[in-house]
Each structure stands twice: as C-alpha cells, then as structure tokens.
C-alpha cells in the first residue's frame, strides 16, 4: 500500500506573544492556504510506503529527510565533495517526490536536509506518527503507541513538537541576510508559545494546540519530540508520569520492563520520548520546560514551552 502526501514549502508569518509577525518557512498541506508550523502531522500505518510530493515555492533549494526512519539518504555533494544536501534537492519552483517505507511505529520528524541550521530553524519540519498493526482510529480499544504488550494503551494522545525561534535569525534570513549566530528568544510547543499553546486547534499557520484535557482515570500518552537545536527539560508538575519509549523504541517488552517514572525529563535535540500517565483528580496541572529561561516569551514569564493538563 502507498500513502500519498503533497506538501508545499512556502514563506509565511507566525504570531508569537509580544512579537510582531515573524517570517518563517514551512510546509503547507495544500497549494492554497498558509504554511504551517510545525508542518502538517502525517499519520500512517506501519509498513506502508509513504510518498511525499514536495513542491518548493521558496527561493532556495530544500529537501526532506526522515531521521529515525529506515531509509537510505541520497546526499548531494558539490564538486569538491562537500555536502550540499543530505537528500536530493527540490529546486526553487520545482516538485520532487520522496518515498520511504515506515517500518516501525512511533513518532518521528520529517525535516529539511539542506542547510538545516537555517532551514529547520526557519520552520521546515513536521511530525509523522506511525501507527502499529491493529490500530483502528475508530476503535479506542485498539489505541496503543507500540502495539499490544508494549504497555502503551492510551485513551488520549497529544503530540508535542518542541522547537525554538530566533526572531533575529528569521528576520535576517527572510531578508536574504546572513544571521549572526543562534540565540533563540521564543520557545515553542507545536509552533506556539504559551499562552497560545492553550488555544484550540485552528486552520491558521500555527494550527496545533498543546493543551491536554482528560477525565480522571483516563490514560494520557504524551509524545514529545524535539525539533529544536537545544535540550529541553520537560516537567509535568504534580503528576507521576512513566517514560514508556525513547526514540520510538518501546521500553516494555514481554521479557523486560525498562519503563521508568520521571517528573522532569531531558529531551535532546532530535530525540523523542513517549510518556504515559493516568489523569489524576480534577484540577489544572502545568507542563513546562524546567530550563526556566525557556518558559518565557522574550524576557517575560510566563511563556515559551508551557501548557496545561486539564482534568475537569
């Protein structure tokens, strides 16, 4: 079976609390409509062949790579033998199809493999969730992250893509200037800084909310993946959470249970963790970055990587 996606890479503008419109480059799911930060969530069953047709409306060449996936990159080099791109480039104005077979379930990034220090920072990344065999979106009884026996049955799932924005770098690159080093001033979950993380999903350039709502006793699976360039220490306050997978490798197998409890979890760039908890007594519980200079917007608390788990 083949699952087909079409993505358009475009310029756009995101809104961050306390900042004017910030230019970004992102992926859009349609030829009309804005680019998204992060890119559209791609949801595919394990074992499928995924074909992504990428149309590049940006001024420079871009590419797609699939870290953590079973694929053979085809790097492009210049005559001197130096990397130009980690996978074939889609030239400005062109279209190219990237394909891979998703061989294991989990949460993954797709992102640019061309000048990633600029293009990923500008927003050319998104998440892909690969469903295990037997997963039926219409039947909650089948909802697991990694299949039966992996201890990852859930009632509520929330994907959280972490990243940072250096607004000065965005302004420079959007104007064709060279940026002066990396110094992020905004810290994002799903493309949004707190308190925007609390808003519901919408159809704008930052369509993915990050608030979790669960009834007491419901099993909540947080799938956190770091698309930024620095580590983030994610804390779930007052809730005992169990780490059940790292880099999409389930920690619970029939022979060994390597899952562990952790209230503050360091997630390095490019890494993912799945954490599972049971929604406790009604109340509001905060999830935030214990790197306390990342739960601000610019210089103002609260902000950044922060959201709420609401148990009504």
């Amino acid at each position: 079976m083949t699952v087909n996606y079409n993505l358009w890479a475009k310029t756009g503008s995101i809104s961050l609390p306390g900042a004017g419109p910030v230019p970004f480059w992102g992926f859009a799911p349609a030829t009309e409509g804005p680019a998204r930060l992060p890119g559209p969530l791609l949801e595919v069953p394990q074992g499928e062949n995924v074909e992504i047709s990428l149309t590049n409306d940006l001024a420079s060449g871009i590419s797609l790579v699939f870290p953590g996936q079973d694929f053979v990159p085809q790097p492009v080099k210049n005559p001197a033998g130096t990397f130009v791109s980690y996978n074939p480039e889609t030239a400005s104005g062109g279209t190219l199809t990237y394909s891979l077979t998703v061989s294991r379930p989990g949460i993954f990034l797709y992102e640019s493999g061309t000048a990633p220090e600029k293009q990923i920072q500008m927003g050319l990344y998104g998440a892909m969730v690969v469903r295990p065999p037997g997963f039926d979106p219409g039947n909650p009884a089948t909802w697991t992250a990694y299949g039966s026996g992996s201890g990852t049955d859930f009632d509520i799932e929330k994907i959280m893509v972490l990243s940072e924005v250096d607004t000065a770098m965005h302004q420079a690159l959007a104007s064709g200037d060279e940026p002066a080093g990396y110094k992020p001033d905004y810290f994002l979950i799903n493309g949004r800084s707190f308190p925007d993380t609390l808003n519901p999903d919408d159809s704008g350039p930052q369509p993915y909310g990050a608030k979790v709502t669960a009834a007491p006793g419901q099993r909540v699976l947080l799938r956190i993946i770091n698309a930024g360039f620095m580590n983030h220490n994610i804390r779930l306050q007052d809730i005992d959470a169990r780490v059940v997978a790292g880099d999409s490798r389930p920690l619970i197998t029939p022979v060994l249970d390597k899952s562990y409890l952790k209230h503050t979890l360091t997630i390095g760039s490019g890494q993912s963790y799945d954490i599972l908890f049971t929604a406790p007594t009604p109340g509001k519980y905060v999830l935030y970055d214990r790197n306390l200079n990342c739960c601000v917007n610019g210089n103002n608390f609260p902000g950044g990587i922060m959201t709420l788990v609401e148990v009504p």
């Binding site: 870290p67 990159p73 790097p75 990633p116 220090e117 990923i120 060279e178 080093g181 360039f229 490019g270």
Partner: peptide, 23 residues
C-alpha cells in the same frame, strides 16, 4: 546497511558551522 553515504551531524544544527559558515 545498504551501500551509500549516511550523514553524521550534530542535531544542534548551529554546531554544523565553521565560524558561522555552513557546512
């Protein structure tokens, strides 16, 4: 795995530069 060239890099991508110049 299969023959090919597999890039190794620091996912803190700003560290993939020499005095600010990429790659």
């Amino acid at each position: 795995p299969a023959p090919g060239t597999y890039p190794v890099f620091n996912r803190d991508c700003y560290k993939n530069t020499n005095a600010g110049v990429t790659p």
